[in-house]
Amino acid sequence: MTANKSDRVTRETAATRHVGFTVNGQYHEFRVGSGGIEISPTHTLSWTLREVLGLMGTKVSCDSGACGSCTVIMDGKAVLSCKVLTIECDGKTITTIEGLRDPKTGALDPIQQSFIDHTAFQCGYCTPGMIMTAKAFLNENPQPTEEEIKDALSGNFCRCISHYQVIRAVMSVVEKEGEHGR
């Protein structure tokens, strides 16, 4: 190990490193380290959300970035929380399934309500990830075609095959929004 590295590393760790980010409107700050309530560099965002912040709605299925179950919205984009290091979330704004309800009235998000109305789930395990993916997508593209919705959800694993009902649920939100717009 060269002297250079020691200098650099010492410089960085001497001042305790903190990571702060906002989840569902609430700011959280963690100290980096390996103690019980600290954030280890190896922690994924899905782990921190579930095990530290107690937000169990974010489901981990494959834990390898291939199924979309753990999707959350980060700075407006649907991302896989199992493939994000918590230590790299400094300054980010994150929304999880728990953050979709209207904070004042408690009303469900229209996508959530539409999933209920269309029974767009069976076992429900992949549902939070699907709703978050759809939410980020509709935020960006409020009037998509059915094909675009399918494309947006193409990274979300559902084994019960609720796909057809999910598509109807999301399309129904799109149609309703369209009516309001007119």
Binding site: L55, M56, G57, T58, K59, T96, I97, E98, L100, R101, L108, Q112, Q113, F115, I116, T119, F121, G124, T127, P128, I131
Partner: peptide, 8 residues
């Protein structure tokens, strides 16, 4: 249904 779509 509500539990499933709210992650609870």
């Amino acid at each position: 249904a509500v539990e499933i779509v709210t992650g609870t």
